[in-house]
Computed example of a mutant assay.
Amino acid sequence: MTNLMDDELVRQQQQLASLIERHTPDAGTHSTAISSLKLIRSCGEALPVYSVYDPALCIVAQGSKLVMLGQESYYYNPASYLVASVNLPITGQIIDAAPEHPYLSLQLNFSTDQILDIIKQPHTDWNHAEGSGRGLLVSRTSPTLLEAVLRLVRLLDSERDIPILAPLIIREILYRILQDEQAGASVRQFAVAGSHAERIAKAIRLINRDFAKPLRIDELAAAVSMSPSSLHFHFKEVTAMSPLQYQKHVRLQEARRLLLLDIPGAANAGFQVGYESPSQFSREYVRMFGLPPLSDMKRLRETLAERSN
């Protein structure tokens, strides 16, 4: 039975890789006619990419990827999938890709409302733990999940069917994730009103909304109806970092984005994301990205120019 399941997974992975390759004529992240679905192709190992993940399912059809959350590493490949249940600042790096064997993957974003709509249905029996767990995890891919994912990607070949069928298939995909003992618990915790995880999700939204403003832990804790100590504990359980560390990651990633858009002056970008001291901004920028802002921009632009040639 196990061998048959493994054979089925390999067949599905090959089909998914073929579909993604056909719909990604060149390297990069490609939006699709399904608004929540993106397809990714890379023809070589690249520099780490810093971003804030929205809640999403990430599946690799070919190649592999390493994701860092704080000091934790998450590796996934075609035998596994990654799910982010809440907005998280991560570092991602493709570690297995080549022109003749490109990295091929997809990202399907979802919302807490979509999860809540499933778990509140009658005749379902979900366990609702009161604690809080990590908002990012890797779990083993199943044939039932991949089969639903394949049907979703195949809709890109018949776009007129997307408005009717895509929401139904996405609902099935999310249901399959919720059925996974490990991943399901991680995703469900943020949809349970009043749970520690749901309050942390609210705290994360508040930080992201006002990341350039000074962060006062007592005010943030009061806004989500938690004590400062409880907020700190559960925030770290979900994100692997403290609220202040989270804010720093978001600030620096936004500053890097502004610099890449040619916002004049590194110090100005630092000021826009909440840094009052240019030297502190530069120091923390180097600590995260490995180079001072202007040197980092030179490296990034050279890398982008090489890819476009």
Score class of each variant (00 low, 15 high):
2 T>M: 12
8 E>R: 14
10 V>D: 12
11 R>S: 12
14 Q>K: 11
24 T>R: 03
24 T>W: 00
26 D>Q: 13
26 D>K: 08
27 A>T: 10
27 A>E: 12
30 H>K: 11
32 T>C: 07
33 A>C: 03
35 S>M: 08
36 S>A: 15
37 L>Q: 07
39 L>N: 05
40 I>M: 14
42 S>Y: 04
43 C>E: 14
44 G>C: 11
44 G>W: 00
45 E>Y: 01
47 L>A: 15
51 S>F: 08
54 D>N: 15
54 D>A: 15
54 D>V: 12
56 A>R: 12
56 A>I: 07
57 L>K: 08
58 C>H: 11
59 I>P: 00
61 A>S: 14
61 A>P: 06
77 N>C: 12
78 P>G: 03
78 P>M: 06
81 Y>Q: 06
81 Y>E: 07
82 L>T: 03
87 N>E: 13
90 I>R: 06
95 I>Q: 10
97 A>V: 04
98 A>S: 15
99 P>T: 05
101 H>V: 01
107 Q>Y: 00
107 Q>R: 12
109 N>K: 14
109 N>M: 12
110 F>N: 11
114 Q>L: 08
116 L>R: 15
116 L>Y: 09
116 L>S: 15
118 I>P: 04
127 N>H: 11
127 N>A: 15
128 H>N: 14
129 A>S: 14
129 A>H: 08
133 G>D: 10
135 G>D: 07
144 T>Y: 00
144 T>A: 11
146 L>M: 14
146 L>N: 09
147 E>R: 08
151 R>E: 12
151 R>N: 09
152 L>M: 03
159 E>V: 13
159 E>W: 00
160 R>M: 10
165 L>V: 10
170 I>R: 08
174 L>T: 01
185 A>R: 13
187 V>Q: 07
187 V>R: 07
193 A>Y: 06
198 E>G: 07
199 R>Y: 01
199 R>M: 08
200 I>H: 05
200 I>T: 06
201 A>T: 08
202 K>N: 10
203 A>W: 02
203 A>L: 09
205 R>Y: 02
207 I>S: 09
207 I>L: 09
213 K>D: 13
217 I>Y: 02
219 E>S: 14
220 L>K: 07
220 L>A: 11
221 A>F: 03
224 V>K: 02
224 V>T: 03
225 S>T: 06
227 S>N: 05
229 S>A: 15
229 S>F: 01
233 F>G: 02
234 H>K: 09
235 F>A: 05
238 V>R: 03
238 V>F: 02
246 Y>K: 08
247 Q>S: 05
247 Q>L: 06
247 Q>V: 07
248 K>G: 04
248 K>R: 15
249 H>S: 13
254 E>W: 01
256 R>M: 12
258 L>S: 04
259 L>K: 06
263 I>Q: 10
266 A>F: 01
266 A>I: 00
266 A>Q: 09
272 Q>A: 14
272 Q>G: 03
273 V>N: 05
276 E>G: 11
279 S>G: 02
282 S>I: 02
284 E>W: 00
284 E>N: 11
285 Y>P: 02
286 V>W: 01
287 R>W: 00
297 M>D: 06
298 K>V: 12
299 R>M: 13
302 E>V: 03
306 E>N: 11
307 R>G: 14
